[in-house]
Amino acid sequence: MSRTVITTSNAPALQAPLSQGVRKGPVLGVSGQLPLDPGTGAVVGTTVAEQTAQALRNVTAVLKAAGASMEDVIVLRVYLTDPADLAAMNEAYAEAVGEPFPARTTVYMRLPAGVLVEIDALAVVAG
Rank of each mutant, 00 (worst) to 15 (best):
P35F: 05
V5I: 13
A42K: 11
T47N: 12
K64N: 13
R3I: 10
K64Q: 15
E71A: 14
V43E: 11
G45R: 06
V62G: 02
T4E: 13
P26V: 08
T4I: 15
V107Q: 12
A123V: 05
T105V: 14
V48E: 04
G25Y: 01
V107G: 13
S9T: 11
K64W: 00
R3K: 14
P102Y: 08
G21I: 02
L18N: 13
P112N: 10
E118K: 07
A42F: 07
Q51W: 02
L76Q: 08
D85V: 08
S69D: 13
T60N: 10
T106S: 07
T40H: 06
T106H: 07
P112G: 14
E99H: 09
G39K: 04
L111R: 14
V43M: 11
L34C: 06
A92M: 13
M89G: 06
L63R: 02
L56I: 11
Y108E: 12
T40L: 04
G41F: 00
L28P: 00
A103Q: 13
P102T: 11
P100I: 04
G32I: 00
V125N: 10
M70E: 05
T47I: 07
E95R: 12
I119H: 01
V115P: 01
P38G: 13
A103P: 05
N10T: 09
D37Q: 08
G127N: 11
E95K: 09
M70I: 11
A49K: 01
V125C: 12
S9F: 04
Q33I: 06
I74C: 10
V97H: 03
V44F: 05
A96F: 02
P12F: 11
Y93M: 07
A103Y: 10
I6T: 09
V30N: 00
V30F: 02
A126L: 10
D120T: 04
V75S: 12
Q33S: 15
T8S: 08
A49L: 05
P17R: 09
R23F: 03
G114P: 06
E99G: 09
G98E: 05
A113V: 09
S69E: 04
A55M: 03
N90R: 10
A53Y: 02
G21R: 00
V62C: 01
A123S: 10
P83Q: 12
V125K: 08
D82P: 09
D82Q: 14
G21S: 12
R3G: 11
S19V: 03
D72W: 01
A42P: 04
T40S: 15
A61I: 00
I119R: 00
E99A: 14
A96D: 10
T4M: 12
T8K: 08
I6K: 05
A68D: 02
G41L: 08
Q33R: 15
A68Q: 01
V44W: 03
L63E: 01
A16E: 14
Q20T: 03
I119Y: 00
L76M: 07
M89L: 12
V43H: 06
L76F: 10
A65G: 06
R77F: 15
A92C: 13
A94T: 08
K64H: 07
G25I: 03
M70W: 02
A13V: 14
P17T: 10
D37R: 05
T106A: 10
V27P: 04
N90F: 04
P26T: 06
